[in-house]
């Protein structure tokens, strides 16, 4: 196994142990807990918090991907070109809104819990995906597009069979960025009572128990690193496959 493969396997094993068997780590975190205080978070199972954390991120990122790619397809068609500057403005402004402020502003409208977190993660995820989708869809090789038109593909067929597959690796870069940001930002969702791993960190902040802060922080950090890594691998694999296909087509 290569060195990076071993590091990856070790990280996965460490993460699984932290999530499934948190008590194994009592001696590790004990020095950071206040004297006589609890070392390992026990008010909720780490597994269920992790699942709900990842579920929120997956749902928000999935929706953001659908909307952002859909919007990008729309504004790169001739009919939607008039909306390109507007959609750029909206996603740019959306990105300057601080996540905590979005969370807090959504609470009066949506109540406490998962709702505001979903909205904030969704809004935050849009920009990176939208930007890369536009870049991917508007920088396709003209020769390929000409060939697709030449063999009589309709607009719809060109989009599905040529443009989207070619733009996919670039779009994936945006999705990866957006998912990693969402994994970190979701922890803040626990300030408005969403069930995420942020709950562990906040419990630590409120009781000045650094053991909780570290426990939550390490798990979220590992999730972020591993998801980033997995999506990078997927991206490389896709690019390689596309490269081979186009090389085969040329031969």
């Amino acid at each position: 196994m290569s060195r990076s493969g071993m590091i990856r396997a070790a990280c996965v094993a460490l993460l699984l142990a932290l999530v499934l068997r948190p008590h194994w780590f009592t001696p590790v975190f004990a020095p950071f807990a206040p004297a006589g205080g609890p070392v390992i978070y026990e008010r909720a199972s780490i597994l269920s918090l992790s699942l709900s954390h990842l579920g929120l991120v997956a749902l928000a990122s999935g929706l953001a991907t659908l909307v952002a790619v859909g919007l990008a397809i729309l504004v790169t068609r001739p009919a939607g070109a008039a909306f390109l500057p507007l959609s750029r403005t909206i996603t740019n402004i959306g990105q300057t809104f601080p996540p905590v402020a979005v969370l807090a502003l959504a609470v009066p409208a949506l109540g406490f819990g998962a709702g505001p977190t979903l909205v904030a993660l969704f809004l935050y995820g849009l920009l990176p995906i939208f930007e890369t989708a536009i870049a991917g869809l508007s920088t396709l090789p003209p020769a390929t597009m000409e060939a697709a038109r030449g063999i009589g593909l309709t607009r719809w067929q060109r989009l599905i069979r040529v443009e989207l597959p070619l733009a996919l690796p670039v779009i994936l870069t945006g999705i990866r960025l957006s998912v990693v940001i969402a994994i970190g930002t979701a922890t803040v969702g626990s300030t408005v009572a969403a069930r995420t791993l942020g709950e562990v960190i906040i419990a630590g902040l409120l009781t000045s128990n650094t053991a909780f802060v570290l426990q939550g922080g390490v798990i979220v950090g590992l999730f972020a690193v591993l998801v980033y890594d997995a999506l990078s691998l997927l991206e490389t694999a896709l690019t390689r496959r596309l490269g081979r296909q186009s090389a085969g087509a040329e031969a």
Partner: peptide
């Protein structure tokens, strides 16, 4: 995560 950074 930002929350943990502040906490640490």
């Amino acid at each position: 995560p930002s929350l943990a950074m502040f906490g640490i």
